[in-house]
Design a protein around this nucleic acid. Structure first.
Lengths: 202, 202
DNA sequence: CCTCAACATGAACAGTGATTCATATTTCAA
DNA sequence: TTGAAATATGAATCACTGTTCATGTTGAGG
C-alpha cells in the first residue's frame, strides 16, 4: 500500500527521516496542495530530486505519512489501554482521550493530514476512520453486553466519539493554538458517560 | 466580506445562479483544488470569462458559497426551533439534528466545502464554526441555568455536539452514500441526553 | 428603431510547480 | 583499496490552469 523505497544505508535512512519530518510539518501547517515539493526538500535540507529517490510522487509521500502516523496512534492507544485491562469502558475512554490529545500535540501533522485527506485520497480517508471505528464498535459492543453501557448502536456511538475528539482537538489545537487541559478532559468524560442531562437530573 | 458582483438584470441573475450551483456541486464532488474554473463554467454552460464577471477569482467564489450556505443553514435551524419555543433543550436539539441532516442532503456542497475550508481559508473556516458555537454556548448556558442540563462547560459541549453531527453525517452521507434514518437520530438524541451509561444504568 | 450599459465570449497569456534525468558523490562489502 | 550499488544533485522540462482582455451580443428604456 505504501510506496516508499526503503533505504539500504544509514545515510539513506537519515535522509528519509528528514524528508518525512519536514513533510509532516509542512502538510500540517499549509495543507497538501499549498505545500510545494520545493518547500519540503528545502526544509529537509536536501535537493529536489532526492525526494524522488524515496517516493514516486507527492501523493505517495502524503499517504505514507498518513499510514505511518495512523498506525502509530492506534498502537499507542492500544498499549495505553492494555496497561489497565480491567478498568471500565469509561475509564478506558479517558485513557484514549489522553493519548489522543497527547499524540496530536506531538504529531500535529496527523491531525491536519487526515482532515484534508478527504480531498486528496478519499479511499485512504475512509479507510483511516473505518479502522478506528472497527476497534470502537468491538469495545462498545462488549460494554453493551456487560451491561456497562445501555444498548445504543455501536457504530453511531463510534462516529459520535470520533467526532467529539476531533472537534475538541480542532477547537483547542487549531483555533486556540493551545491544548486541552485536565478540566476539559474531565468534562468530556462526564459528557460521554452521562450526557447533558445526566442521571442526576431529577 | 463577500465579493460577488450583484447582477442588475434578470439574465445576469440567472447566470450567477447557474455558476453557483455548478460550483457548489463540483466543490462538493472533487474539492476546491481539484475543480478547475473550466469545469465550473462548462457545467454552468457559460464561457470561462463569464465567471470573472461575477467573481474576481476562484477563492471569492468559494468563500461566497460558504458564506451563503452557512447563513442559510443557521436561518433554517433558527426558524425550526422558533416553531416550538417552549420545548426542552433536548427537544430543540432533536430539531437541530433533523434540520442539519436535511440540509446536508439538499446542499451536500456545504458540508464538503466547510470541511476543506481549513486549508483554503483558515479564517473563514474558524469563523464558520465559531458562529455556530456562539449560538450553542448561549443555549447551553441557559439550559444550565434552568437546571435542565448539569453544569458542563458550554464551549466544550458546543464543539462536542458539532463534532458528533459532523462525523455522523460524514459516515452516512460520504462513506455510506445514504442518509441517517430515524433510528440513528433517536440514538443520537439519547446519547446526547444521557450518555453511554445513562441514568438507567442500575 | 436606437443606444448604451450590462453581460458574454474564448483564445491567448503567464506563472506555477511537479517531475525528470544526466551527472556527481558517497558508502561499504569484498 | 576498489568498484558497484546506493544515494544525492538541481537545472531544465512540460503540462497544467487561473486569469485577462479585446471583441461581440443582448435587451430595456427612450
Amino acid at each position: 500500500m505504501s510506496f516508499v523505497k526503503q533505504p539500504k544505508t544509514q545515510r539513506g535512512e537519515l535522509t528519509l527521516r528528514k524528508i518525512c519530518k519536514a513533510a509532516e510539518e509542512l502538510f500540517a501547517e499549509k495543507g497538501y496542495y499549498a505545500t510545494e515539493i520545493h518547500d519540503i526538500t528545502q526544509k529537509a535540507q536536501v535537493a529536489t530530486g532526492t525526494l524522488y529517490v524515496y517516493f514516486p510522487d507527492k501523493l505517495s509521500l502524503f499517504l505514507h505519512l498518513m499510514d505511518e502516523l495512523g498506525r502509530k496512534l492506534r498502537r499507542e492507544i492500544r498499549a495505553a489501554k492494555q496497561k489497565s485491562p480491567d478498568s471500565t469502558f469509561i475509564e478506558q475512554e479517558r485513557i484514549s482521550i489522553r493519548v489522543f490529545f497527547g499524540f496530536v500535540r506531538e504529531h500535529f501533522g496527523l491531525f491536519r493530514i487526515v482532515w484534508q485527506a478527504q480531498f486528496v485520497d478519499e479511499q485512504a480517508f475512509k479507510g483511516y476512520y473505518e479502522r478506528f471505528a472497527r476497534g470502537y464498535v468491538a469495545e462498545i459492543t462488549k460494554a453493551n453486553e456487560s451491561g456497562e453501557a445501555r444498548d445504543l448502536d455501536p457504530t453511531v456511538i463510534a462516529y459520535a466519539l470520533m467526532g467529539i475528539y476531533s472537534f475538541v482537538a480542532l477547537k483547542c489545537f487549531v483555533f486556540d493554538k493551545s491544548e486541552p487541559d485536565e478540566a476539559t478532559i474531565e468534562q468530556l468524560v462526564e459528557f460521554i458517560a452521562r450526557g447533558i442531562c445526566g442521571g442526576a437530573s431529577s
